[in-house]
């Protein structure tokens, strides 16, 4: 049996760990609340914009804007959104699994340090990596989106897709791939996302292919499409942050609970050892007294 001193030392270290994980849980919880609010508030906008575009993709000529043109996919362009720090359970590992499944040629852009590290480690083609502050300022995300659009227009990549941990609730985050460009591919994923958000699919739209544009189609598309990409990427990063903080809070809560349980076990063991030592001592004293008598 371990000596009481050893057990005491372990109790102390477990207590420290518990204190740290508890503090981290509280920090994550408060960040989570803010991040979740931001992510949920932005959703209707992103959703509506995506729907607007899905309807649009059917009704306008491909030639109106390069974003509408379907071309042969040689290289996929993928934005991988991960967290900067670890200690958030299986969140990043699940994303990496999704990214590792991509066997076709692809070029990557990473948001978050963990993703960048992973892509370098697995020797993927990393075009750039970006850091985004916890508050997810639109300007920082815009840089990423604009960089990706430029790569698309220059033909470096033939699609733009985003992989991020979609926030469902505090306990569940689903790693998801969403194709953004070309726009025709947006539609398929949209129905699924909508069903997931608790809204049924919208009634089938009338088939009239006429659509009026004011002032005119190229002008509207020129303004709308880049903004859509910017907003969509922004929304997904907000979502990823909400997921990150949720996952971290849950992971820290589990760690704290484990520490509490371990502490109980250790205390029991310590008391037993102490009691055994006392009993031993009494035995020795009484034996000595007996033999002296």
């Amino acid at each position: 049996m371990a000596s009481t001193r050893d057990i005491r030392r372990r109790i102390k270290s477990v207590k420290n760990t518990r204190q740290i994980t508890k503090a981290m849980e509280l920090v994550a919880a408060s960040k989570m609340k803010k991040a979740q609010q931001a992510a949920l508030a932005g959703r209707p906008y992103a959703q509506l914009m995506a729907e607007m575009l899905a309807a649009l993709a059917d009704r306008v000529e491909e030639s109106f804007h390069p974003f509408l043109v379907k071309r042969e996919v040689r290289t996929r362009g993928i934005i991988l959104v991960t967290s900067d720090k670890g200690l958030c359970g299986p969140l990043n590992a699940n994303l990496f699994k999704l990214a590792a499944d991509i066997k076709t040629p692809a070029k990557f852009v990473a948001i978050g340090r963990k993703g960048a590290q992973f892509l370098v480690r697995t020797k993927r083609d990393l075009l750039a990596d970006f850091q985004v502050h916890d508050r997810v300022p639109f300007n920082e995300v815009r840089l990423v989106a604009e960089f990706m659009m430029k790569q698309y227009l220059e033909g470096v990549v033939d699609t733009v897709e985003i992989i991020w941990p979609r926030f469902k609730n505090t306990l569940i985050q689903v790693p998801t791939v969403l194709p953004l460009l070309p726009l025709a591919s947006v539609k398929a994923v949209l129905a699924e996302l909508r069903a997931d958000a608790g809204h049924p699919a919208p009634a089938t739209r009338s088939s009239d292919s006429q659509m009026l544009f004011e002032p005119d189609a190229p002008t509207v598309l020129e303004a709308l499409l880049p903004r859509f990409i910017n907003r969509e990427v922004h929304q997904q990063v907000l979502d990823a942050k909400a997921s990150e903080h949720s996952a971290r809070m849950v992971a820290m809560k589990t760690a704290k609970d484990n520490a509490t349980k371990l502490l109980g076990d250790l205390t029991l063991e310590y008391n037993k050892a102490r009691q055994a030592a006392i009993t031993q001592e009494i035995l020795e004293i009484s034996a000595a007294a007996f033999s002296a008598a």
């Binding site: 607007m52 649009l56 009704r59 009239d208 006429q210 659509m211 009026l212 544009f213 004011e214 002032p215 002008t219 509207v220 303004a223 709308l224």
Partner: peptide, 11 residues
């Protein structure tokens, strides 16, 4: 915009 408006996309 009144009911029955044709599909429109405007800035």
């Amino acid at each position: 915009i009144l009911p029955g408006h044709i599909p429109l996309l405007a800035q």
